[in-house]
Amino acid sequence: MRQRILNGVGRSFLLALSVFRLTSVAYIGAGTGSLIIQVVLASMLGAAVVTRIYWQRIKEFFSRNKEEDSAHGE
């Protein structure tokens, strides 16, 4: 079951993400399994980074509004 999930995840990433070929030379072997788990992990972790960035912006937006409100109030 776990094998099938890994297969499915890997294949869908490969299909969705094979966009263009490498132009630079990689002289060390990256390893297929290693690259695939990296794509999966990086997507998850990247989503967290983006969420954090937007969350920060939302917080800043509201705290700015609050500051402006209190400035108007004075």
Binding site: G10, F13, L17, R21, T32, S34, Q38, L45
Partner: peptide, 28 residues
């Protein structure tokens, strides 16, 4: 994952999909 793909014929050089933010997330 390494063990699983050990004998699979996948062109590793074609693999894409790690955006800059994703890479920063991985490094972090």
């Amino acid at each position: 994952s390494e063990k699983h793909y050990e004998v699979k014929s996948v062109d590793a050089m074609e693999i894409r999909g790690v955006t800059r933010n994703a890479l920063l997330g991985l490094i972090g």
